[in-house]
Every structure is written in structure tokens, then in C-alpha cells.
């Protein structure tokens, strides 16, 4: 059995009187790619943000073996830094990496996401898809043990989601451990090892992509999948 990276037990998250996550347990092993799907407002982002502390859990236990990196829907690149500086800043300032080493590694990552020519360009001058690829490189530069993606393609025009999904697919093939909250059912079906369906703050169903997409058991998942196909 491979190493456990994340073990969440009975996670509850309230915002004031509103219970958004209602006792979720989830274990993630090294190298796994997990897709979280579910209707809007079901608590997917909140659950993800509990993992790295962006949201503080109300109750429950999170055991994390390693560090996390995160990619946001709206990229959140630092606009006053070039793409390269966006990637090298944290390794240098937080991890104390050597500047030249950090730069070399950043260039490799930029190459990996196909943006080596944009190293010295400011984020305002590149497209959304390119921004998201830089954001992925920025997160990877910290060598996280677990990558969290919160709808990384939702802010992008449909025709350019592919360039971002391809990078993520490549990461999955290299056995990067990742949790991806996504509305891209194609990606979940094709790339995820395990798909988790959340509804109303709970995990309703989880299993292989075939289990979830070909043989949904619960009515709620069936209804959700139907609504996805219709839209």
C-alpha cells in the first residue's frame, strides 16, 4: 500500500450558522489524482481550502504528510512581478533557495508548461490560459507533495481550457498527487484515478470514473450527471 499523503476525518465547516461541509472523510495516497465534482455551492471549494488552512475547520482532523500547493480559479498571479519572478519569489524568499538555482528550475517549469518565451513578461500581457499555466508552474516550484486545483479552467474561454488541462494531465501521468475540483467531466473521466461526488456538504458517492459516470447509484448523482449533459 502506498504512502498516505492526506487523511481527513469527519471534517465539518460552518460559516456562521451555515454548515457548508458536513462531516467529510477522505484519504489520498501518494500519486493519486482525485477529481471532486458536484453542483455549485456543495462545499467543494470549502473542503479544498480546509486542507491548506485557507479555511479553518470547525471540527474534524486533518493529517497532512507534506506540503500543499494550490492553483486558483482566478490565477492570482502577482501582477507586479514577471512570470519568472512569480515562480522564483517563494522558493527564494520562503525556502531560501539559491537565486540562480531557483531561476533554472523556474525556466524548466516554464518549459514544461510551454511558456519559456514568457519568462520576462508581466502577467497582464499574457492570456488567461497562459496565466493559469504560469500559476501551475509557480505552485510546482515549491515542490509540493499535494497539488490542489480549484476549478482551474472555469475562468477560461472554452477553447483554451485544453492547454491548461493538458498540463494537468501531464502532471497526473508523472504521478503528481492532486485533488482537482472541476466542472470538466471529460478531464475527471479521463485523468482521475478516483472521482468524488459532493452534494450539500457531503460526499455522496466516490469511486473510479467508470463507477461514477457509467454506473451512478444515487439519485442525486444521476440527476447531477443529467444536468451536466443538458448544459
Amino acid at each position: 500500500m502506498s504512502q498516505t499523503i492526506l487523511k481527513m476525518t469527519d471534517i465539518v465547516k460552518d460559516f456562521g450558522d451555515l454548515r457548508v461541509v458536513k462531516g467529510v472523510s477522505l484519504t489520498v495516497s501518494k500519486g493519486e489524482t482525485i477529481a471532486i465534482i458536484g453542483p455549485s455551492g456543495s462545499g467543494k471549494s470549502t473542503l479544498l481550502r480546509c486542507i491548506n488552512g485557507l479555511n479553518k475547520v470547525t471540527s474534524g482532523v486533518i493529517e497532512l504528510n507534506g506540503e500543499t500547493g494550490m492553483v486558483f480559479q482566478h490565477f492570482n498571479l502577482f501582477p507586479h512581478m514577471t512570470c519568472l519572478e512569480n515562480i522564483t519569489y517563494a522558493p527564494i524568499k520562503v525556502k531560501g533557495e539559491d537565486k540562480e538555482e531557483a531561476r533554472k528550475k523556474a525556466m524548466k517549469l516554464l518549459e514544461m508548461v510551454g511558456l519559456e518565451t514568457k519568462a520576462d513578461v508581466y502577467p497582464a500581457h499574457i492570456s488567461g490560459g497562459q496565466k493559469q499555466r504560469v500559476a501551475i508552474a509557480r505552485a510546482l516550484a515549491m515542490n509540493p507533495d499535494l497539488m490542489l486545483f480549484d476549478e482551474p479552467t472555469s475562468a477560461l474561454d472554452p477553447e483554451i481550457t485544453g492547454e491548461v488541462l493538458n498540463v494537468m494531465k501531464k502532471l497526473a501521468e508523472e504521478h503528481t498527487t492532486m485533488i482537482v475540483v472541476t466542472h470538466e467531466m471529460g478531464f475527471a473521466k479521463e485523468v482521475a484515478d478516483r472521482v468524488i461526488f459532493m452534494n450539500d456538504g457531503e460526499i455522496v458517492e466516490e469511486g473510479s470514473p467508470e463507477d461514477i459516470f457509467e454506473n451512478p447509484r444515487s439519485e442525486r448523482l444521476k440527476a447531477f450527471l443529467k444536468s451536466i449533459i443538458r448544459s
Binding site: N52, G53, L54, E67, T68, G69, M70, F72, H74, N76, L77, F78, Y89, A90, K93, V94, K95, R138, A139, M142
Partner: peptide, 20 residues
């Protein structure tokens, strides 16, 4: 989002304010 990005990269509050 800028604070969140800084936070997930592990920057301290001081670094976040000063550099971001």
C-alpha cells in the same frame, strides 16, 4: 486572492505586505 496566493506559497504576513 493576492493574500491567498501568498499564503499558500508560505509567505509570512510581513513578506506578503512588503513584497506583494
Amino acid at each position: 486572492g493576492q493574500y491567498e496566493a501568498a499564503y499558500v506559497l508560505g509567505l509570512s504576513r510581513g513578506q506578503t505586505m512588503k513584497d506583494i
